[in-house]
Computed example of a mutant assay.
Amino acid sequence: MKLLLLAGTREARQLAQALSSQAGIGLVASASAAQRPPQGLGVPLRIGGFASADELGAYLAAQRIDGVLDAGHPFASDDSFQAVEACRAQGVAYARVIRPTWTPSEGDLWDFAQDEADAARQTAPGDVLFIATGRDRLHAYGALPGRVVHVRQLVAVPETFPFERGGWVLSRPPFDMRGEAELFERLGIRRLITRNIGGNGARAKLDAARICGIRVSMIRRPLLPEGVRLETVSAALAWARRLD
């Protein structure tokens, strides 16, 4: 049996490590983000994604893929729709590995937003913002005039900062609540903007926002295609074994 793993999350790395040791399972991974390819998969990795469902379908047929485990980023919905279309056309099994969303706890000050533009409308002149959604979608916030904007980056970026006031905040995980709270207090943050990716790895900033009394603009996940959805790595492993 041969599987294609669409990578882009911590769960993808865990699945690659677990499945690669299973007898009788061949595994190849694909990642669409060539600028920051996933590390530590330990299996053959195809970088660049697929231009269309037809291209992916041709790849599935040529590689004789029996099943696709989609463990891509929770906001990579276009890739998921493409994968579902290709799998249906080729008669290949498909499952989406999607971690549960974050939900607010007592004391959280969350405002849900549909997208970046909606989150921008939740801000006001004079606000000091901390944007933790990456730089690829910064244009979608607009100019944010009159705001001080701090944008987290995991690596140094060469381009000019796109907002009139503020700057890049370079930091590397793992993050903890105390460190995030100290950062927010030092910068004078009044609103955190983030996407609802779920999981424990990025949860610390939400806990820090709660104890600091900071409002959060929580961008909802995009719509995903219908199909099998698995919330844990163990459930995904069980699904893969049933294909054999």
Rank of each mutant, 00 (worst) to 15 (best):
D207H: 09
A18Q: 04
A181G: 01
V155A: 15
L27R: 11
A208H: 13
F163T: 09
M218E: 02
V97W: 05
M1Y: 00
E185Y: 15
F175Q: 06
N196P: 02
F81W: 01
V155R: 12
A89N: 14
G213I: 02
A89L: 10
A156S: 11
E85V: 09
A202D: 09
L224E: 04
R221L: 03
S171D: 12
A236W: 01
V169T: 13
A89P: 12
G107Y: 08
G48I: 01
V151C: 14
V155H: 05
I214P: 04
A34K: 02
F130E: 10
G199K: 06
V43N: 07
S77E: 00
D127G: 08
I131F: 08
T232Y: 14
A58T: 14
R152V: 10
L5V: 15
A143T: 10
V92I: 15
T160Q: 14
A143N: 07
G126Q: 15
V97C: 14
Q153D: 11
A34L: 02
K2T: 12
Y141E: 00
L3T: 07
R186D: 00
L69V: 06
Q114E: 11
Q63N: 04
S32T: 00
G142I: 08
G201Y: 10
G227Q: 03
A71F: 06
V128D: 09
W102C: 07
V169K: 08
A113C: 02
G179F: 01
V157T: 14
T133A: 10
R121P: 04
A62V: 07
A240S: 13
L60Q: 05
V233K: 10
I25K: 05
G199Y: 11
V84R: 07
A143P: 09
G227H: 02
A236Q: 12
I65E: 02
L3H: 00
Q22P: 10
T133R: 00
W110P: 09
R241K: 14
R10G: 14
S32E: 06
D66V: 06
W102R: 11
L192H: 02
R191G: 07
Q122T: 01
F184I: 00
R172K: 13
Y94K: 04
G201S: 13
V68M: 04
R215Q: 01
R135G: 14
A31D: 05
Y94T: 12
V128G: 12
P145S: 04
M1L: 08
E85P: 10
S52Y: 09
L3I: 10
I47Q: 07
R137F: 12
I25N: 01
Y59M: 10
S234N: 12
G57T: 08
R210V: 05
A58K: 13
R195G: 12
L6P: 06
A117C: 04
L4F: 00
A29H: 08
V84P: 05
F163W: 05
F81E: 01
Q35W: 09
A83W: 00
V128T: 12
L60D: 01
I211V: 15
C212N: 01
Q39P: 02
A124I: 00
P104D: 10
G24M: 04
D70S: 04
A51T: 09
Q122A: 11
Q14V: 11
T123S: 03
G213T: 01
